[in-house]
Amino acid sequence: MAAIEHQVEHEHGHASPAVRLENLKFATWLYLASEVVIFTVLIATYVVFSLNNREVVHEVHEKSGIVLVALNTFILLSSSWAMVMGLRQLKLGNRQGLITWIGRTALLGTVFVALQYVEYRTLSDAGVVLFYTGGELSEFGMRFYAPTAFHGAHVIVGVLWALFIIWNARRGNYSAENYAGVEVFGLYWHFVDVVWIFLFTFIYLI
């Protein structure tokens, strides 16, 4: 009885690492496909407004300054680099290297979120708020906060995920052959980075 259940578990649960990697990678790309759609809609909503209201955008840019987001951009780019270096170490068989690099990823991600918080504070003190307060700044606000905060939420999830990867790596769950979990997290994290690349250009520069 128990034997059958175990066997069922076995049949339904596990494939070889290589097959698992193939399946997981494809699934992750499909998941990213749907993320692409959501972010496109949110960014498009912003861009439509921005093209029709140049002065408002300009005013907000004046208020926020470029230094903080530029810094944040470099931080996120570095975290992405750290991520891929970690995966490289793992594939070279160095699990400690993986832990170190992913640790940096998580740290940089955390700093990113913290700085985004600082930025939000500055902006809302300057009157750019999410709610309608009567005035064009809040019309800007909702369209600005929706995509950036949604992205920020992705970064937070990513940091938690990175910690999970570290925890797993410390228990010895990954190896040069068995790296699907890390690879999939990498795809996610780099995707979040790509989204930021566009947010940075479309929201803060243009």
Partner: peptide
Amino acid sequence: DDNPLYALALVVPLGIGLIAAFFLL
């Protein structure tokens, strides 16, 4: 050096998203 099919997973939704976006524009 991965499967080109994965590129479709980015390009097709991006195309569809852009149709929507350009329309809104």
